[in-house]
């Protein structure tokens, strides 16, 4: 139970931080910021790696679902950071 309280505390503090982090964002950065934080939400890759690598002998399903999750999350992460970088490069060239 203590661990759960700690996790909930982390969650609440991170939510507050997330709210405070975004204040004034120039309109040109709306899409890159969305895209960048989208790539960060690919952090679920960590969970996917643990599922795919758990070597759960009881069921092939866990490993297969884990592999699917790793593939999807990797697309999210790799594609997300690359796309954000491309968008930002476009802005800096324009300036």
């Amino acid at each position: 139970m203590d661990i759960l309280i700690m996790q909930i505390s982390l969650f609440v503090l991170a939510v507050i931080l997330g709210i405070e982090l975004i204040t004034k964002v120039p309109a040109t950065l709306h899409t890159p910021l969305m895209s960048g934080s989208n790539a960060i939400s690919g952090i679920t890759l960590v969970g996917a790696l643990l599922a795919a690598g758990s070597g759960d002998a009881n069921s092939l399903w866990v490993s297969t679902l884990g592999m699917v999750a790793v593939a999807l999350a990797t697309i999210n992460v790799v594609g997300g950071f690359l796309v954000t970088n491309r968008m930002l490069q476009m802005f800096s060239r324009r300036r």
Binding site: F11, A14, G18, L21, I43, V46
Partner: peptide, 16 residues
């Protein structure tokens, strides 16, 4: 790391 990063993106995403 999932809890913290997910909460960050979730909250900042709502504000955005």
């Amino acid at each position: 790391v999932l809890i913290v990063s997910g909460a960050l993106v979730g909250a900042s995403g709502i504000i955005l």
